[in-house]
Simulated scan of single mutants.
Amino acid sequence: MTDTTPEPASGPTGPTDSTEPEGAAGPAARASLGDGLRFAFGTLTVLRVRVSRWDRAAARGGMLAAPLTGAVVGLASAALGVLLLLLGGGPLLAAVATVAVPAALTRGLHLDGLADTADGLGSGKPAEDALRIMKRSDIGPFGVVTLLFVLLGQVAAVSELYAEGWARGAAAAVVAAVAARLALTLAARAGVPAARPEGLGAAVAGVVPVRSAVAATAVTAVLCAAAGAAFGPDAAVRYAAAPLVAVAAAEVLLRRCRRRFGGVTGDVFGALAETAATAALLVTALG
């Protein structure tokens, strides 16, 4: 998620943080499952999905469905990595391709959000000035260094897993992508404010009930454990722990951003997703 302008009428091609939601839904407003899925895929991926509703009720369903978009992104990234392995490519080449797919399917917006958030946190400026730094189109030294180490860490972890077998690498790629989007669900829970009064950060801040966020976390951990069970009981434990460690790492960053900026922005959501994905990959790769 980052700071570009979406086009709700035709379906945004990526999460943004500069458009105010139209017609915020009241307590009685309801969004269908389809509305939530369209919101999720229309804002969290580049897939051409027509977002028919751009209000908080649809945002609630969309953020609860965020892990599902992660499963789709993860399957696509795993498919390319496995294809390269089957064609004779090495684990490192397959890992680079696997890490590149999520970036392509979000137009690099999560990575851009990570870099902007790093620049804002590292600027040492007051909140308003830091937020202005984050909205600039350039990337500063903090952002460059953060991107470098995060991408190196992701590639290294996936390469290690592919070296153990294509199935392990593929499963980890899916788990990491799901964990990354689960972090967004938790960051959109009730009680987490927006740092700005406009943008997608404001549209999704606080829309997910805490109980629903906890339930989504539990369901995700169980499904990840099931995926890891194919590789043995130890792997099942690691794969169950991966999303939990991922959201814990994202929570540390979220609390830092809340103290520093006063709340969340689209850039912060992007940074949380990349932080969670990296943590999940490290957990699955270790051991």
Rank of each mutant, 00 (worst) to 15 (best):
P126R: 09
F149Q: 02
A216F: 01
A127S: 15
L114Y: 04
E20T: 15
A183W: 00
R260H: 14
V245L: 14
E22Q: 14
R136N: 08
V245M: 12
L84F: 05
L254I: 10
V210L: 15
V208C: 01
A188S: 15
A78T: 07
A213M: 01
G14Q: 08
G270V: 07
A95T: 04
L282N: 00
L200W: 13
L92C: 01
A170G: 02
A167E: 15
L86A: 15
G263M: 09
D3Q: 11
G11L: 10
T217P: 00
T19K: 11
A100F: 04
L186R: 15
G34N: 02
E7N: 14
L44P: 13
L92S: 07
A115R: 09
P233V: 09
G191N: 11
G90F: 06
A187R: 10
A215I: 12
V219Q: 01
G263V: 06
V175Y: 08
A94F: 07
G124R: 06
G266C: 12
A279L: 10
A194D: 07
A58R: 09
F269T: 05
T275W: 00
V72S: 02
T19W: 12
D112W: 06
L84G: 02
A97N: 00
T284A: 15
A202F: 11
P15K: 00
R107M: 11
V73M: 06
A202T: 00
A213E: 09
L111Y: 12
L86V: 13
V283P: 08
R211Y: 05
V237G: 00
Y239A: 12
A25K: 07
A236K: 06
D35K: 00
A127T: 04
A229N: 00
F261P: 07
T19I: 11
G62K: 03
V268T: 12
